[in-house]
Design a protein around this nucleic acid. Structure first.
Lengths: 229, 229
DNA sequence: GTCTATATAATGATAGAC
DNA sequence: GTCTATCATTATATAGAC
């Protein structure tokens, strides 16, 4: 499946919105209203007529993408946690990316959204962090994942890692079709699976001196106010 | 030090270029020639006169940033490897980021450059990957870092991780002054030090079944052609 | 709802005076 | 080298016909 919905059976307004999402994925958020109109095969004026302004169109696209990603991850992660987990790195993140990839352009749209920052980005990331924290907690309880001295911070770090590595991978290996999330994720996993799993299993360092030093500071100063620079 | 060079003692051409770097850091690469001219306190025409086109100016900025980052990391990493390493996560990456942060706007410029992709981005990342691979090899020889089944892939992954986490951190926590690399890095380290060191020391997982499974595929198919999806 | 035509602003780039 | 003035293009957005 390469598009969000079949082009028919949608209001023109929805068709323009979906066309805009695809154009934003292909050309970036700097794409013009004209480019969107051309892709939706309508006049530029009609785009503005439906969304009042370019910013309005953009906001609607963001909202749509967040809504789609929300319902998809809710479905995948189920009522409690994911039962089909096979010990992958970072359950909730992996499952969320997989889920986003299934609906074509969502994956790249999200990476652009997150990179740009702003409120929509924070909404998405915060939600994902919460999911990851939950899935980590149950994985810790199940004994498959080590506990952390700071579970919320680890969840944040895991999300930043996963999204960040994906963003760099996309920048270094531009996909032939940015709207084909499945193919993108497939290549991405191929390129990163070995080092990612290795890192998740054993870490990098042989000793604990670095961690001991960091934890000493962290215990005495949990607010992180007096960090190392 | 918050700027690249004292504003005096530079040719106008160099002043415009440095002003452009700062404007690109503050407003993104979509900043106009006029905005650059205003910041350099010259006319828009003069900018074009010196750099022929907007693309020419941008290319010169990229080249300048790459040159600066190159000479800085060469200096920091020294003839062989970094002797002042204190067991931080990813020697060469950490030292490179620290070095970039010292010259004000470089840090954020690099993150924008890498995110955008393209040739300059690949040049920078490839060079950094090579540095990391070298520093990892000697850390492995010294016994402080575990060996990897695929050192080049691990080096790539470590670079993607470090830059990626920084990019997400910047997007989620926009710095008050994007040209103050030192402050940005300080905050970044404060937010990520604990989970990053924890992860680098112990990884995430308690068992090796995931790694075993991945390595089984990797051994039989080193090209990565037949990856898991 | 949808279009064409247009107003208005901003952009990159040029020409020529000094 | 540097400026002012201007052109050509493109952008968003509006007005009004159908």
């Amino acid at each position: 499946m390469s598009s969000i919905q079949p082009a028919s059976d949608l209001t023109t307004r929805a068709r323009i919105r979906d066309a805009a999402i695809e154009v934003f994925v292909r050309e970036g958020f700097s794409a013009s209203v004209r480019a969107v109109a051309a892709h939706a095969v309508v006049s530029p004026g009609l785009v503005i007529h439906h969304f009042a302004s370019r910013a309005g169109l953009r906001a609607e696209c963001d909202a749509r993408v967040l809504e789609l990603s929300r319902s998809r991850t809710d479905h995948v992660l189920g009522t409690d946690q994911n039962p089909s987990s096979t010990g992958d790195v970072g359950d909730a993140v992996t499952e969320t990316l997989r889920s986003l990839a299934e609906s074509g352009p969502l994956l790249v749209y999200i990476t652009r959204l997150v990179t740009e920052g702003g409120e929509s980005a924070r909404t998405f990331v915060d939600h994902l962090v919460r999911d990851v924290e939950t899935s980590m907690m149950s994985a810790v309880a199940a004994g498959t994942v080590r506990p952390s001295v700071d579970e919320p911070a680890r969840a944040r770090y895991l999300v930043a890692m996963s999204l960040g590595v994906l963003i760099i991978d996309l920048a270094m290996n531009p996909p032939p079709d940015p709207t084909d999330g499945a193919a993108i994720l497939h290549e991405y996993v191929n390129r990163t699976m070995v080092p990612a799993t290795e890192y998740a299993t054993h870490g990098l360092l042989t000793g604990t001196s670095a961690l001991d030093a960091v934890l000493a500071v962290h215990q005495g100063d949990p607010s992180g106010e007096n960090g190392v620079d």
